[in-house]
Design a protein around this nucleic acid. Structure first.
Lengths: 109, 109
DNA sequence: ATTCTTTATCGTAATATTGCAATATTAAAC
DNA sequence: GTTTAATATTGCAATATTACGATAAAGAAT
């Protein structure tokens, strides 16, 4: 085997896992931090910022995009990538809800 | 190649990525939800709940434990797994901070 | 039209993850 | 001490991820 059995889980579980998975790499965390910090959000700037080759960055951006965490707007021959606040909010909301459920029961450890 | 170049990122970036990575699988999300919902938290219950073989569950639990998301207490010959609220809080705090930074600038897309 | 700049895709090697059967470990129960 | 029950570890096959060089694509600048 080796492939995740996604069909056994709820749509929401798969959705949250897929967002978390996209954030599960330090380069992609670094990209998110850069996009949150900086005023411009040109792909080339990210390539300069991170210690990875351009194709690798492009691949990471694609994964963040597929997870809905960022979106890209074409600006001339460059591309401006930005954080999609909705997806971040969705993830946050999920965790807040999980923490709430946890508060309601006696965590036994 | 194929291995993540962790040495190029900050300790915090690696830490957050590793927590997110642990949550990046629907089975592990399902385990977290189960632990947040249910009053007992015996490993065997998780095995009964999820559509995976016992060794696979054990492996997923190990990963959640390595990421600091859960902890296990021995109870007789069973093991009681519980969510580690501190790690959840750390992750939440990180995202809240990221969202705050985002608010301070003009998200250009 | 050609060249330059920027980003994406392809191909591929190295490594990691997922899942499970078989087996080991550990502690309770008898 | 044997057996039973619960969890962990090992070993392995299938698949996925990571990283990058080479190359393609698409628009800007000349």
């Amino acid at each position: 085997m080796g492939a995740t059995k996604t069909e056994h889980y709820s749509q929401n579980q798969n959705a949250i896992a897929s967002i978390a998975k996209a954030l599960g790499h330090p380069a992609r965390i670094a990209i998110m931090e850069f996009l949150a910090k900086v005023d411009t959000c040109i792909c080339g700037d990210i390539v300069n910022e991170l210690p990875l080759a351009q194709p690798t960055i492009s691949q990471h951006l694609k994964e963040l995009k597929n997870a809905g965490l960022i979106q890209g707007n074409i600006e001339g021959n460059a591309i401006c990538y930005c954080i999609n606040e909705k997806t971040m909010a969705k993830l946050q909301g999920y965790f807040i809800n999980l923490a709430l459920k946890l508060k309601k029961k006696n965590n036994c450890c």
